[in-house]
Amino acid sequence: MSCWDIIADYGLRSLGIGERLLPRDNFTLCHHFTLIGSGLLWNIYFGTLALISGFFLAVAVALGKASRNIVLRKLAGWFVLVFRGSPLFIQFFFAYFLFLSLKGVHPVFSPFTSAWLGALVVLFLNTAAYSAEIFYGALRSIPRGDLEAADAYGMSGWPRFRRITYPTMLRLAWPAYTNEAIFLFHATTLVFFSGFPAWQQKGDSLYYASYLADKTFNPFIPYPVLAGYFILLTLVIIAIFGAINTRLNRHLPRPMRPRLRFRPNLIR
């Protein structure tokens, strides 16, 4: 069986396309790369969608936290505290069992008990909370001169936010937000280990890596393969975010542009 056959059989296995049964013996390196790479599709799916949707909520929550309205401020503060103060692992478990009980109340909630939606909701809220804290910090360190200049030009309300506050906030927050993105993709590996069932063995990269490690009883191949994939993924994220960073800072003279630094050193 050549490697191409294996890729044809298992390349999209994580989506349920191709061979139904997972291989049970005679594992080759090709099996490892194909299966784990196939699982990576889920990590990309969760990470990308949670990041994009979470971005909007994060901006809203950051603005709420900085607003003059005490109700909004408290609400945003509690939201951030709850999601940043507790482990993501426990949040996944809680959400899964919550959706499971809600399913009994109304069938609307039944898709939430499967990972593709339920875990996505948790990741969305979680990354929104972490990013909101980053954006809030940036919001508070916008140079006062910029806002005063906006006032002097007669800008206020929406035009001032859209043309001054928002771009500056994004620019200041971007390096930290890049780390958050990297670290969100790492967090997606928790999904299938925390309650959410991998239906018909359609799991993410870590799910397959641990399957292979269990079957071969040899952790020294699947986990390094997984690590390689994630290092590649991290490099891609850094490249994309770096390009956006350059664009956000294009008005600044070259030596003043902040450089992106890779330092994701947190677990949630």
């Binding site: 290092i231 994701p264 677990i267």
Partner: peptide, 21 residues
């Protein structure tokens, strides 16, 4: 660098078997 660049949970799952073996 290595421990920071890879999902931590992968390390947890890896080391438990690897250390034992």
């Amino acid at each position: 660098a290595l421990v920071r660049g890879v999902p931590d949970i992968a390390f947890f799952l890896f080391f438990v078997i690897a250390l034992d073996q």
